[in-house]
């Protein structure tokens, strides 16, 4: 779990380089924020998985997770704003 949280944080550091200090600081002191990072990682991985899937439901799932990645980014920005 902790590794997934860190992978999610790494993605976010790459996504928003200008917010790196704020992201690291929030990650270190807000367990809820670390969980959001993990959820972000899971959404990104699922999007990649379903994008490659050959199942009929694959494209729909990929679109769903793409939207979920964006929605989770918004949650993260809101959580950051509460710093």
């Amino acid at each position: 779990m902790e590794q997934a949280q860190k992978r999610g944080l790494t993605r976010l550091l790459l996504r928003w380089p200008e917010r790196r200090a704020q992201l690291r600081e929030k990650f270190a002191r807000d367990p809820g924020f670390a969980e959001l990072c993990e959820a972000y990682e899971a959404a990104c991985e699922a999007e990649a998985y379903w994008t490659k899937s050959t199942l009929p439901v694959g494209p729909a799932r990929a679109r769903e997770y793409d939207a979920l990645v964006s929605a989770t980014e918004q949650d993260i920005l809101i959580r950051l704003a509460l710093s």
Binding site: L36, A39, A46, A71, T72
Partner: peptide, 14 residues
């Protein structure tokens, strides 16, 4: 392979 519940639960907690 479809972690929708886990992800949405985290978003809900937040």
């Amino acid at each position: 392979t479809d972690p929708i519940v886990r992800i949405e639960a985290t978003r809900l907690r937040s």
